[in-house]
């Protein structure tokens, strides 16, 4: 395989896809923890924060990498997409700022301000999740601001928010025990419908956006070959639904299951979307080949990426290993 204008865009689209997927899963759970704040007691909030404390910075970095790859590998698409999504991007950024700083301030500001920073943490998480869901909807609809598209985007905004709170609850089930874990199981039961609705809405709507995508899914033999994707998703949702009725178990067996299930669902949904949109980076307008930066620049980034990404994954694994097990009180000493 030669690294030229036909292969490099595919490789970078793949790298960007992996970054977005990792972001949605990893920041998904810590955004979800923020979304669940109003349902938790103040003491429980400290423990929920402790469960994400060592990770959230690095989780958010996957968003920077994803947007960075879009920026550097597909510069023209970057401008088109981000100017079309100007307002939701701004809402997301304000949300990210609020939650990032609230995380620090709530523990360091005077105690009387703590409740306000907790509220800021929730509002920031909500703004971030909802605007990301909104952008997802607008993107699927081809980045055109019509009333119908905005309506659909509002639906995906709600669905992604609930989906994030589901994966957040799944994380809390995994990282805590006793009363808080019990509560998180109830949250997860309340949130799983958002996951199902979101996946359902996107799956139903996408094929009708363009005949090209429709053909891709429903012509023969694709329709048979691809059938496992939706079937597995439905089966997994049912399994999660049933599993949550029996959690938490004695000895804490299967506490990992909701989180693993939610992650798998996101991976499945992601591959479905990738399959629908390839080779377009701006739906139905611009392909990854048209938007790609010059091969010599992509080559030098790829060279670095092949060397550095394994290291990043290595020390990310180290970090999750160091902080494995149930979350304990955060302390600097």
């Amino acid at each position: 395989m030669t690294l030229d204008a036909t292969t490099l865009p595919v490789i970078f689209a793949g790298l960007m896809g992996i970054s977005i997927l990792l972001y949605v899963i990893l920041d998904g759970f810590d955004l979800g923890v923020g979304l669940l704040f109003p349902f938790a007691e103040p003491a429980e909030r400290d423990r929920m924060i402790a469960s994400i404390g060592p990770f959230w910075d690095a989780n958010e970095t996957w968003l920077v990498l994803a947007i960075g790859i879009l920026l550097v590998a597909f510069p023209t698409a970057h401008g088109t997409i981000l100017t079309a999504l100007y307002l939701p991007v701004a809402v997301m950024l304000v949300g990210l700022i609020l939650r990032g700083v609230a995380f620090e301030f709530r523990a360091k500001a005077p105690l009387s301000h703590k409740a306000s920073w907790d509220r800021a943490f929730f509002i920031g998480s909500l703004m971030t999740s909802a605007s990301q869901g909104f952008m997802l909807g607008m993107y699927i609809m081809g980045l055109e601001w019509t009333l119908f598209h905005v309506g659909f985007a509002l639906l995906t905004a709600g669905a992604l928010t609930v989906a994030y709170s589901f994966i957040g609850a799944a994380w809390v089930i995994l990282k805590t025990d006793d009363a808080l874990q019990l509560k998180a199981v109830a949250w997860a039961r309340g949130g799983i419908w958002g996951m199902a609705l979101g996946l359902g809405a996107v799956s139903v709507a996408t094929p009708f956006v363009s005949t090209r995508i429709f053909e891709r899914w429903f012509s023969f033999p694709e329709v048979v070959l691809l059938a496992p994707l939706p079937l597995m998703s439905v089966a997994l949702i049912v399994l999660l639904w049933l599993g949550l009725r029996h959690l938490p178990t004695r000895n804490d067996h299967f506490a990992w299951f909701p989180f693993a299930g939610a992650t798998t669902l996101m991976v499945l949904g992601f591959f479905g979307m990738g399959y629908s949109f390839y080779p377009y980076i701006v739906p139905e307008q611009m392909t990854i080949y048209e938007a790609a930066a010059s091969p010599e620049s992509l080559r030098i980034i790829l060279f670095g990426a092949l060397f550095v990404l394994p290291m990043i994954i290595g020390y990310t694994v180290l970090s999750y290993t160091v902080f494995r097990g149930k979350a304990t009180k955060l302390s600097y000493d």
Binding site: G53, F55, D57, L318, F323
Partner: peptide, 9 residues
């Protein structure tokens, strides 16, 4: 970002 987690906590 990753080593900050280990450094702090």
């Amino acid at each position: 970002a990753v080593f900050l987690g280990i450094m702090l906590f």
